Computed example of a mutant assay.
Amino acid sequence: MTQNSVLSALSAAGVSVWLDDLSRDRLISGNLQRLIDTRSVVGVTTNPSIFQHAISHSDAYTQQLAALAASGADADSAIRTIVTDDVRTACDVLRPQWAASDGVDGRVSIEVDPRLAYDTEATVNQALELWKIVDRPNLFIKIPATRAGLSAITGTVGQGISVNVTLIFSAERHRQVMDAYLTGLEAAHQAGRDLSEIHSVASLFVSRVDTEVDQRLEAIGTDTATALRGQAAIANARLAYAAYQEVFEGGTRYAALSNVGGRVQRPLWASTGVKNPAYPDTQYVTELVAPHTVSTIPEHTLESLADHGVIVGDAITGTVEQARTVLDEVGAAGVDLADVFAVLERDGVARFADSWHQLLDAYSTSAKTVEGAAGRGAPDR
């Protein structure tokens, strides 16, 4: 099979292409392998919403759900088993990409229970548990970038576990995430761990920023405000990349860790699917091309890129002042960006928690069905 030229150009420009989806159907059908072979995919990200959709829209899980229900497994342990089984299999599929990239790519991410987003200790404990259950070196544990999550990032990295930090919405929080990662590396080094085996990405959500900001700009309604629609997300991400360069390409703190094997924490662009049909359907990928980045891409956007995407090289370096101007103008128009980021973080955690609850409810319903069928089939006494 041959790789698509557009996705190959994206990879050549320094962007790792990761699929923002996982399901058992993809694994069984060979779809994931096809995307690796033809769309330059070298990683996979998951979240509770992705698994909720996968499990509720596929018969591939029916047999395992029934077996778990028949065994008396509670909802939390059953869903954990199903999810970790899929992630483990995907890790095995991507193992060659992990080996070929010295551990940088070939990664599969699994998220801690989103209900723990505000509990540091419980997050670290579950990160350790998931790391042991999946038992694959190319795993990423996803931890949300809440304030409690920052300490959990440090604690998890300090244990030698690779982390994908999720639900980052602002460049300011991104800086706090990088600091938490470096503190974790320092703790790992003091504990005698091999820093070269610890990897991390910082996932900055993109399209959701425009969705929230655009809504507020439209509510303001002035010509100046409406003219700014569709610009905030890309500007915000570009400032986050500039912060990455400052910390990892010019910072003395990281330089000291690099000398003992420490790896950079790459920026990852999440939520790259375009929500507003008025915008180009590939803009959150093509406008955020830069070396040492990751773009997590839903399959429909991946196919749009393959069909008509245009990659012209680094689209971020040299744009910092322009990006700052955009966000300054958005603020001057009346949008409270600090509130935007707080709302997005809160809503992001709530969405994932809601999806997790739906997963648990679906399993509980399945378990009751199995119990009912067993009862009907039981002999008369």
Rank of each mutant, 00 (worst) to 15 (best):
G160M: 14
V163P: 03
I141T: 00
H174L: 10
T166Y: 02
A180H: 03
E172A: 12
I161R: 07
L139K: 11
A180K: 03
I143S: 08
P144T: 05
G160P: 01
R175H: 11
I143W: 01
S170A: 04
Q176P: 02
D179C: 03
N138K: 12
A180G: 09
A152L: 01
T146D: 08
F140K: 02
S170N: 10
D179N: 06
A148P: 09
G158L: 02
L139E: 05
S162P: 14
K142L: 10
Q159R: 15
S170T: 01
G155I: 00
G149Q: 14
L150W: 00
L167I: 06
N164Y: 05
G158N: 13
R173H: 06
A148N: 14
D179I: 02
R175I: 03
H174Y: 15
I153P: 01
A152Y: 02
G155P: 05
M178W: 09
F169Q: 04
R173S: 13
E172L: 13
E172W: 05
R147I: 15
V157Q: 10
S151Q: 10
V163M: 08
N138F: 07
V165M: 08
F169C: 00
A171R: 08
A171G: 09
A148L: 04
V177A: 13
E172P: 13
R175T: 15
T154D: 02
V157L: 07
E172H: 15
M178G: 13
T166R: 00
V165D: 09
Y181R: 14
S151T: 05
V163I: 08
T156M: 06
A152W: 00
Q176L: 10
L150N: 00
P144M: 11
I168C: 03
I153C: 11
H174K: 14
G160N: 07
V163R: 07
I141V: 14
G155Q: 09
G160Q: 10
F169P: 00
K142P: 06
I153H: 08
K142C: 05
I153F: 04
R147Q: 15
A145W: 02
D179S: 03
I168E: 04
K142D: 13
N138S: 13
R147L: 15
F140E: 03
G149I: 13
M178F: 05
A148I: 00
N164I: 06
R173F: 08
D179P: 07
N138L: 11
K142E: 13
R173Y: 04
A180P: 05
N164H: 06
G160C: 08
L182Y: 07
A148Y: 12
K142M: 05
N138D: 04
R147Y: 15
I153M: 11
N138Y: 05
L167M: 11
Q176Y: 12
A171E: 15
D179K: 12
I161P: 01
G160Y: 12
T166M: 02
L150Q: 03
L182E: 10
V163T: 06
Y181F: 15
T156K: 04
A180V: 01
N164G: 12
A152D: 01
T154N: 02
F140Q: 00
E172Y: 07
N138V: 13
S170K: 07
